[in-house]
Amino acid sequence: MTTEKQLVQTDIWDFLQSYTSARIARGRAGHSLPTKELLQFQADHAQARDAVYSSLDIQNIQDRILHETVVLQSKANTRAQYLQRPDWGRQLSEPSKQILKDIIDTPQDIAIVVADGLSANAVNTHAIPVVNGLLNVLIQHHWRIAPIALVEQGRVAVADEIASAFKAEIVLILIGERPGLSSPDSMGAYLTYQPSVGITDERRNCVSNIRPEGLNYPAAIEKILYLLTEMKTQQISGVNLKDEMQGKLLY
Score class of each variant (00 low, 15 high):
Asn136Thr: 08
Gln153Phe: 14
Glu202Phe: 06
Leu150Glu: 00
Tyr217Asp: 09
Ser32Lys: 09
Val70Lys: 10
Lys5His: 07
Pro179Asn: 11
Ser182Trp: 12
Leu150Ser: 06
Tyr19Asn: 09
Leu241Phe: 14
Asp57Ser: 10
Val131Arg: 15
Ile103Pro: 01
Thr2Lys: 12
Asp63Glu: 03
Glu37Lys: 06
Ile145Leu: 08
Val207Ala: 11
Ser196Glu: 12
Pro95Gly: 00
Leu38Pro: 03
Val158Gln: 02
Leu227Glu: 04
Ala46Lys: 15
Asp14Arg: 12
Asn77Ala: 15
Gln81Ala: 15
Arg26Leu: 15
Asp63Arg: 07
Leu72Asn: 02
Glu244Pro: 03
Thr106Lys: 15
Leu174Lys: 05
Ser208His: 00
Ser182Cys: 02
Glu222Pro: 07
Ser96Ala: 10
Glu152Ile: 00
Ser183Ala: 14
Asp185Gln: 15
Arg90Asn: 11
Ile199Gly: 04
Ile162Thr: 03
Leu56Asp: 03
Arg28Pro: 06
Leu174Arg: 07
Val123Thr: 14
Pro179Cys: 12
Pro212Gly: 01
Phe41Gly: 00
Asn216Thr: 05
Arg49Gly: 02
Thr78Asn: 08
Pro179Tyr: 06
Gln194Leu: 15
Glu202Ala: 06
Leu138Ile: 04
Ser164Ile: 01
Phe41Tyr: 13
Arg28Phe: 14
Val207Gly: 09
Leu225Thr: 07
Ala51Cys: 04
Asp50Phe: 03
Ala165Trp: 05
Thr106Gly: 07
Gln153Ile: 03
Ala120Met: 09
Tyr190Asn: 12
Thr78Lys: 12
Ser32Asn: 15
Ala46Tyr: 10
Pro86Ala: 04
Val239Cys: 03
Ala115Phe: 02
Ala149Tyr: 03
Val123Leu: 03
His126Lys: 13
Thr3Leu: 15
Gln40Tyr: 03
Glu68Leu: 11
Trp88Ser: 09
Arg155Tyr: 11
Pro129Ala: 04
Ala163Met: 01
Asn209Arg: 07
Gln47Arg: 15
Ala159Thr: 13
Ile12Phe: 14
Ala43Gly: 09
Lys75His: 06
Thr35Cys: 13
Ser96Val: 08
Glu202Lys: 04
Ser93Arg: 08
Thr78Glu: 13
Lys75Glu: 09
Ala48Ser: 14
Ala163Asp: 04
Val52Thr: 01
Ile12Trp: 08
Leu134Asn: 02
Ser186Gln: 06
Gln235Tyr: 09
Asn209His: 00
Thr229Tyr: 11
Ile210Val: 09
Ser164His: 11
Asp201Asn: 03
Arg28Leu: 14
Pro129Lys: 02
Gly198Ile: 07
Ala111His: 09
Ser96Thr: 03
Pro195Cys: 02
Ala115Tyr: 05
Tyr193Trp: 15
Ala115Glu: 02
Gln84Lys: 13
Val239Arg: 05
Val151Thr: 11
Gln153Thr: 00
Gln73Ala: 12
Ala48Gln: 02
Phe166Thr: 01
Val130Phe: 03
Pro195Asp: 02
Ser237Met: 07
Asp63Leu: 05
Leu150Cys: 01
Leu135Met: 02
Arg79Met: 12
His142Asn: 13
Pro107Ser: 04
Ile224Leu: 07
Ala163Glu: 07
Gly176Ile: 05
Thr192Asn: 05
Ser119Gly: 14
Ala51Asn: 15
Thr69Glu: 00
Ala120Ile: 01
